[in-house]
Every structure is written in C-alpha cells, then in structure tokens.
C-alpha cells in the first residue's frame, strides 16, 4: 500500500484526541487554577508545566507538530466537504458542518493565541511569570474577551464533537445506541471543558489579576 489518504486521515483523527484533545483538557485545568486559586494558583500551574522534563521535546512532538499536521490536513478535509444543512436539517449533519467551521476558527484562533502568549516568551518580550498579567490585559478588553470566548468555544466544540467522531471512526461505538450514548457523554465534555475555560477567562479579567498586573508593571517601572 502506497502513501494514501486512509493513513493521513487516520493519523489526523488520532492526533486530534492524542495528544491534542489531552492537551486542551490539561490547558483548561491549568487555566482553571486562575479561577479556583487566583493569580498564585495560576502561576503555580504555569510553573509546574515549565518544570516538566524534556519540555522542548514535549512541546515540539506533543503539541506543535501534531497541531500543524491536524490543522493543515484538517483545512484540506474541510475544503473537501460540502455543506448541505439546508436540505438535510438533521442534528448530526449540523454537527458535521459545525465541526468544519469550528476547525477553521480554532486554526486561526490558536495561531493568534500562540502569537500573543508563547511566541512573546520565545521572543523575550514576556516571561512565564507575566502570563497572568498578559491574560488580564486580554480578558479585560471587551473585544478580545469576545474573540477569546468564540475561539475557546469553537475549540472545545471541535474537540468534543471530534471525540464522538473519533469513537465512530475507530470502530469503538458501532451501533446507533452506542453512538447516542457517546453523544451525550461528549456533550457533557463540551459543557464541562467550556466551563473551565470561560470561568478562567472571567477570572483573568477580574480584580485579582488586575492588581497582580499593576504590581508587575509598577515593578518594571521601578526596575
């Protein structure tokens, strides 16, 4: 068998859950520290991630490369699809179209978000400790807040619905009953993970992070 779309599509499906789906959950939980434990909790979460061994390797093979493959091949998959929700107004058909739309939104959002945060650290404009105040600046601007809300909801929907499709595409949920039950579970995943991100966005925009941000700016001013 030569290189063919079966392998690419299977790899695309797998990478969407492992590691990318896992990453989105971990990211959500880390951010949630901001809501549950405030700026210090969030800083601790960031510190924990940065203290992981072989971090650059984890980032490259666990996030960047899978993300690039899944994103770019995903754009091709979306390009190959029609949308016929006008003629076939079924829930699953809406989810099919939404999966492609949210995929494109997530693709753009992730690039923008990485540019605002991780890339600024690589470029030396930011430190890991300043991430909380960066997020405060983003979350306290109404425009950025709404854009982040859209991006986050798109990403989490894409993950949850993708999890449902993954279970079908790998032959784990075969019959209609199994697929219905897994759709309820995936809806639950959508609600819970969305809540993690939305609550942390609210926390980032809150007073605690503002004070932390002001203190940081004051400190830099003095320094």
């Amino acid at each position: 068998m030569k290189g063919n779309s079966y392998f690419s599509r299977k790899l695309h499906s797998l990478l969407g859950i492992i590691p990318l789906g896992g990453f989105i959950v971990v990211h959500g939980l880390t951010n949630y520290q901001a809501f549950e434990r405030g700026p210090e909790g969030f800083a601790k979460g960031v510190h924990f991630i940065n203290s992981l061994p072989v971090l650059p390797l984890l980032e490259i093979f666990g996030i960047y490369l899978p993300l690039l493959f899944h994103g770019i091949y995903g754009l091709y998959v979306a390009y190959q699809s029609d949308s016929n929700t006008g003629r076939f107004k079924y829930g699953r058909n809406w989810a099919f179209t939404a999966q492609r739309i949210t995929g494109v939104i997530t693709f753009v959002f992730v690039f923008w978000h990485v540019y605002q945060t991780r890339l600024q650290i690589y470029l030396g404009h930011l430190t890991h400790e300043e991430l909380g105040s960066t997020m405060n600046l983003i979350a306290s601007s109404p425009v950025y807040f709404v854009l982040y809300l859209i991006g986050v909801l798109a990403a989490v929907f894409h993950f949850s619905n993708g999890l449902w499709a993954f279970l079908v595409s790998w032959g784990i949920t075969v019959g209609p009953k199994a697929q219905r039950i897994s759709s309820y579970i995936c809806m639950g995943v959508f609600v819970i993970v969305s809540a993690l991100f939305i609550l942390s966005l609210i926390a980032f925009g809150g007073d605690e992070f503002k004070e932390a941000a002001n203190a940081a700016t004051a400190f830099t001013n003095i320094g």
């Binding site: 779309s5 599509r9 299977k10 079924y90 058909n93 079908v168 595409s169 075969v174 697929q179």
Partner: peptide
C-alpha cells in the same frame, strides 16, 4: 476514511439500511 459522520445516508436510505452501523463496523 472519506466518511465524515454527517449520517445523512442512514436518514435518507429508502430501504432503511443501517448504513452508519455498517460504516462503523467496517471502521
């Protein structure tokens, strides 16, 4: 792998064939 799980097929089949079950079983 071309299946995108829109599941329109099973809703449209005039003979009521469980097409999505077949696709998942072959997956």
């Amino acid at each position: 792998e071309g299946c995108g799980n829109s599941q329109n097929c099973v809703r449209s089949c005039p003979k009521g064939i469980p097409l999505t079950t077949s696709i998942a079983a072959i997956n």
